[in-house]
Simulated scan of single mutants.
Amino acid sequence: MPDTKTEKRLKVQYIDNDELLKKSYAIREEVFIDEQRVAREEEYEFEEESHHFIALDGEEPCGVARWRATDEGVKLERFAVRKAYRGKGIGSLLVQSVLDHIQRHPGATNKKLYLNAQLNALPLYVKFGFRPAGERFMECGIEHQKMEKLLMELTFRVATENDIIEIIKMLSDDKLGSQRERFEEPLPECYTRAFEVISKDPHQELTVAEENGEIVGTFQLSFIQYLTYQGGIRAQIEAVRVKSSHRGKGYGHKIFEYAIDRAKEKGAHLVQLTTDKKRPDALEFYKALGFVASHEGMKLHLGA
């Protein structure tokens, strides 16, 4: 079972200096060359054209990964975790960090993502949407399986009444959402009435994100005019969801990037949100985006 204290210390950092790069090479040396007996000349190639990452437990290096553009698409490779740190979720953290970086990188959109996975790592990559492609093969004396996925471009548009059912389906698709939403067909009329109010209010924007025509995410922006901050406008982000079948693609980051850009376009000086304390993973996600827990939020439920 993963050590909770260790998980809190873990982070993945993009390598932008020689010191970290040398530390990443030391991990690859330990895992690939010493442990798996990969030939040194096969291990070190395409280094300058690659984007390198290192996982740290506090200040202690514990895992590495990289990606690079190829004629075939975008290749993820050199995922390695030191033996003492395996089973602590570091592999997942590395994959997610690399995917997030690729998602934000110019020129990576609509490119095929692929990797050559050692067989014991197949479940990890399947969890992130990769699928086997072709027959298994030997590489550096180790059996591998090629895995592929397509990194699609997200498009955003204002939600229409026809989208309500998909939006409510996403909002109800987690433990907390299932307790407060009523996803049933036909949908309760309360959702249609609420949509009519939102769609007529120029200070409200209900948005859906699409991948190749399929709705895969949603969020709502509310623009609030204040007297404070010299008459400033705040943008409140609510009801952010990514369809469960499309999580792990970095779409959460994309949705927030779009929402923040939209807030800037509307003249907002601040973007704010609330997050349920029962979702500690969401809190860490928002912190990674630059949000700061600067206030203590309080709510008073007034009943139905």
Rank of each mutant, 00 (worst) to 15 (best):
Q13I: 11
N17A: 14
D18N: 15
R28A: 14
I33F: 09
R37F: 12
A39N: 12
E45N: 10
E49W: 07
S50Y: 05
I54E: 04
I54D: 00
L56K: 05
A65Y: 01
R68L: 13
R68K: 14
E72D: 13
V74P: 05
V81T: 02
K83R: 06
A84Q: 11
I90H: 04
G91L: 02
G91C: 05
S92C: 02
L93I: 00
V95T: 01
H101D: 07
R104D: 04
P106G: 06
K112A: 09
L115E: 00
L119R: 03
F130R: 01
A133T: 07
M138L: 08
E139Q: 10
I142N: 02
Q145R: 03
Q145I: 01
K146S: 12
E153P: 06
T160C: 12
E161C: 09
D163F: 07
I164C: 14
I167Q: 08
L176V: 05
Q179S: 14
Q179P: 08
E185R: 09
L187M: 14
Y191M: 07
A194D: 08
E196P: 13
E196L: 13
P202A: 07
H203L: 14
N212G: 09
F219L: 10
Y226T: 02
A235Q: 13
Q236F: 14
K249W: 04
H253K: 13
F256C: 13
E257T: 13
Y258F: 15
D261E: 08
D261P: 09
A263M: 10
K266V: 03
G267P: 14
D276M: 07
D276R: 11
K277Y: 12
K278R: 13
P280Y: 10
Y286H: 07
S294R: 11
E296S: 13
